[in-house]
Amino acid sequence: MIDRRHTLAALGSTVAALGLGSAQAQQHTAPPETLADPEETIELWPGQAPGAPARPPVERIVERSTDPALRDRAITGVVRPRLTVFRPQTPNGSALLVAPGGGYARVVLDKEGYEIGRWLAARGWTVFVLFYRLPGDGWQSGPDTPLQDSQRAMRLIRSRAADYAIKPDRVAAMGFSAGGHVCGDLATRHDARVYAPVDSADRLSARPDLAAPIYAVQSMRLPLAHPGSRTLLLGDAPTPALEAAHSPQDHVGAATPPCFLMHAEDDDVVPVDNTLAFRAALRRAGVPVETHLFAQGGHGFGLRGVAGKPAAVWPELFVRWADTHGLG
């Protein structure tokens, strides 16, 4: 793992580039409330998503912010899994699928989706924010429901690479908290057959070229598991076999892509040991992994929650790491 003191000293101007540096950086870090939502949407499935319950959920968007100038929307009851697209002015050829968090009870739109989408699009990345179905809403595929959506999303992105001026071998995935579990599940089970193919896109690989689970829910075993995510994903009393089936550390192998991991050590919602356990599994399998741990940050901070703290450098660290793997 990288020593934070040496990292921060080496980056120097990086902190400035995240909000206090050049005029270009200042332009790209405008307050999120001043920026419009993306208008481009890609539906994941032709017609209804697979395995719909007899009474499909009702999709609702809830504004959780008490500050009228700062958006913090969350979506519940996702019934139309889809991607919203952040197109850069000058594409660099790389794409990122982003799975926001929300404890598998909701999808946190702004803080862990749109903000990183805008930040990376300003730096040339084409970003696709995933509205994934929630496993507690009665879908027939149960705990594999978010994996269905993330696999399908990766395949659709690759199938439309020419439309977005991206390269099919430069498509990464990132996820936050429970969305980090979506990301980790995709990274380790990208070739699992969890749905029947529906069109030619499903002949393409769902494997991300890089993966970045951020303060991720990873283990489904207590006491390491996040209780709320575990219950919504697996039910009240999952068997040890079911826990293992949905703990990404148990599925790391030679085909797992290089991973970028980040967590705050004072996270009192998803223990940092989730990231450490996943890192250990990656190292045992010989999968390249870069890990950044910060003393402060808590949980669910995205970009806005660590402004002015050392952890604020994490997006730049991700970009620099991805560049060493040919993305960016």
Rank of each mutant, 00 (worst) to 15 (best):
M1N: 12
M1D: 10
I2S: 10
R4T: 12
R4P: 15
R4E: 10
T7R: 15
T7P: 02
L8R: 04
A9S: 08
L11T: 03
L11Q: 14
V15R: 09
L18V: 03
G21W: 05
S22V: 00
A23L: 13
H28S: 15
A30P: 09
P32L: 07
E33N: 08
E33P: 13
A36K: 13
D37Y: 13
P38L: 00
P38C: 01
E40K: 15
E43C: 13
E43F: 12
L44M: 08
Q48H: 14
P50Y: 09
A52K: 10
P57N: 07
D67K: 10
D67N: 11
D67C: 12
A69H: 14
A69N: 09
R71Y: 05
R73K: 04
I75S: 06
T76H: 15
V78H: 11
V78Y: 09
V79Q: 12
P81L: 07
L83E: 05
R87N: 11
Q89F: 11
A95D: 04
A95R: 00
L97F: 06
L97I: 06
L97S: 05
L97C: 06
L97V: 07
G102A: 08
Y104M: 10
R106F: 06
L109H: 07
K111W: 06
E112A: 02
G113M: 07
G113E: 03
W119L: 13
W119P: 05
R123P: 10
R123E: 03
W125R: 00
V129R: 00
Y132E: 02
R133C: 01
G136Y: 08
G138R: 11
W139I: 01
S141W: 07
D144E: 13
Q148E: 11
D149E: 11
Q151R: 06
R155G: 00
L156H: 01
L156S: 01
I157Q: 04
A165K: 05
R170C: 10
R170V: 10
V171K: 00
A172I: 02
A172D: 14
M174F: 06
G175R: 05
G175A: 14
F176L: 00
A178M: 02
G180Q: 03
H181R: 07
V182Y: 01
D185W: 10
H190I: 02
D191W: 04
A192N: 03
A201N: 02
A201S: 11
R203M: 15
L204R: 01
R207V: 07
P208V: 03
D209I: 01
P213W: 04
S219F: 07
R221A: 10
P223D: 09
L224F: 14
S229W: 09
T231G: 13
L233I: 05
L234E: 15
A237E: 14
A241R: 12
L242V: 13
A245I: 07
H246Q: 06
S247H: 06
P248Y: 14
P248A: 08
H251S: 07
V252C: 09
A255Y: 10
L261Q: 04
M262I: 12
H263P: 03
E265G: 02
D266W: 02
D273M: 15
L276C: 08
R284Q: 15
G286T: 08
G286S: 11
V289H: 03
T291A: 08
H292V: 04
L293C: 03
G297Q: 04
G300K: 01
L303Y: 06
R304K: 09
R304Q: 11
G305Y: 05
V306A: 06
V306R: 00
G308T: 04
E316Y: 14
L317K: 01
L317N: 04
D323A: 13
T324M: 02
T324N: 05
G328R: 03
